[in-house]
Design a binder for these strands. Structure first.
Lengths: 283, 283
DNA sequence: TATTAAATCTCGTGG
DNA sequence: CCACGAGGTTTAATA
């Protein structure tokens, strides 16, 4: 980032803030506002929020976030907006964000401002790399089917069945077809139903072929398990962290020193109490 | 918010920042950091992000957000964390956030800091009011079933079926049971499947009772429609904005002057071009 | 553009 | 504490 591109205002007057914000929005700067405001939204839904202290972020692309003092989620937002404008009113400083498609309007009215930060020229071109999403898990299991069951031979992956795709189609030791559905999070009834649909479709297409269905997931809900058993399907538990470790070890996932240290922290790592001690009390 | 509780540092040294942040985290203050950092996450998944300019928010409850210069979503985050700590390293200033359940670690390493804002005492107790969410739509339809089909008599709403709930259970003119699934957005295959699950469950519990299934939504995807028809279910289109207006008119939804004006803005309102003109170019 | 499925989904609600 | 389902879900991939 270039230097001298940060402007900070502490407890600014509404009028002064209005001027600064108008220019900041026009020039697509990165803006953060701390203050007390109300929020009104209408678009896909409608909402209203009374006065309170919030942090409002407006990004260069028109993304807007209204954050309360706690929680992950913004209470109001605009994923991106075509028009952002401010207006001085009797009630306070209006900040209005309008999105065209779908049509959505978010209006904030500030009565008090604690701080405004305006930044220009933030640069971020780094690639974001994610490991072990569902596709990666599926590919690992397809390459290492013995993790699911000894003697399994994979026929193909992502086989189109009906309207969807079976994650893995294989044959077991006895030559029976095995349709495998992979989930990287807790499996619910929907996952069981999905597998069931594939099995039904496969049976209708191959009436003579014996076929089994296996749901592979780190965990399964009780009701899903019941449904699964009722439908004559099977469940295999897998440990995602363990598979991640194996994938790294076998080179199927590249690692650098940084991920390695975190990985060890996780798989061989210390307990929370030790960690707390290492780090100090903190939060 | 009380006064004099904001601290702002511009282009701080890492060492100085470390001291300030340590205290801020210990005292559960609201912290925003602008700077260039890398990010490493491991927990439910794993990810790595190379150096770039970001805004990092740490809230009093331990919620943490790492935002790139564009977009709605944080690139990394922690919904809440038990331990947040900083450490001075050769590579830069480490900010580490640890969550216990599930076990997740997010590590940031800052090499440059542009600004740090620390705020204490933000107060926000206002109630967040949403209009026309699915529950409200369901309740309106349950009170006005003729919107779905003439002669429908509602038996109950939110009927437990298995572990889930059918939105509305009714009887039609001919005495058949009707299970109704309500969606306030475009219905996809998942909605059809959900309704199908309820129907199946109902049939298994009441083998003798004839039952219909109706999906009520403002629109439905083509594939979902096909699946729905294949499963012998029905679809009824509703206009959400119209229902919202009726609900307001009949007093089932209270409105104040603010929502009223917004309502009019939407239902009778001006076009985007006019709006753009009103507001000036803006963003 | 529409649609589908995944997500470190998050968040509330109910058992 | 788990499970289910909604969400102004968002986002990426796919047809």
């Amino acid at each position: 980032m270039k230097k001298d591109t940060i402007t900070v205002m502490l407890n600014p007057e509404l009028k002064h803030a209005h001027e600064v914000l108008t220019e900041a929005f026009a020039k697509h700067k990165f803006v953060v506002i701390f203050g007390s405001c109300t929020a009104t939204y209408q678009g896909r839904g409608a909402s209203r929020l009374g006065p309170g202290d919030r942090m409002v972020v407006i990004k260069p692309d028109g993304a807007m976030l209204v954050h309360r003092p706690t929680g992950y989620s913004p209470v109001n937002w605009q994923p991106d907006s075509q028009v952002i404008a401010t207006e001085l009113r009797d009630e306070g400083l209006l900040v209005r964000s309008v999105r065209g498609k779908p049509r959505e309007v978010l209006e904030l009215v500030f009565t008090k401002l604690y701080a405004i930060v305006v930044i220009e020229g933030l640069e971020d071109t780094a690639e974001f790399i994610e490991y072990m999403d569902e596709a990666e898990l599926r590919d690992y299991l397809a390459s290492n089917p013995e993790e699911i069951e000894p003697g399994l031979r994979v026929i193909r992956i992502e086989r189109p069945i009906g309207e969807g795709y079976a994650d893995i189609v294989a044959r077991d030791r006895e030559g029976r077809y095995v349709i495998i559905e992979v989930k990287r999070v807790n499996a619910g009834k929907d996952a069981v139903q999905q597998l069931h649909r594939y099995i039904e479709k496969f049976r209708s297409e191959n009436p003579a072929a014996p076929v089994r269905g296996i749901l592979v997931a780190p965990s399964i809900s009780k009701e899903a398990k019941k449904l699964l058993e009722k439908l004559g399907l099977e469940y295999r538990q897998v440990n995602i962290a363990e598979i991640y470790r194996k994938a790294v070890e076998t080179g199927e996932i590249k690692r650098d020193t940084k991920t390695r240290s975190l990985l060890e922290f996780f798989t061989e790592g210390s307990k929370a109490s030790q960690l707390r001690h290492q780090l100090g009390r903190g939060l």
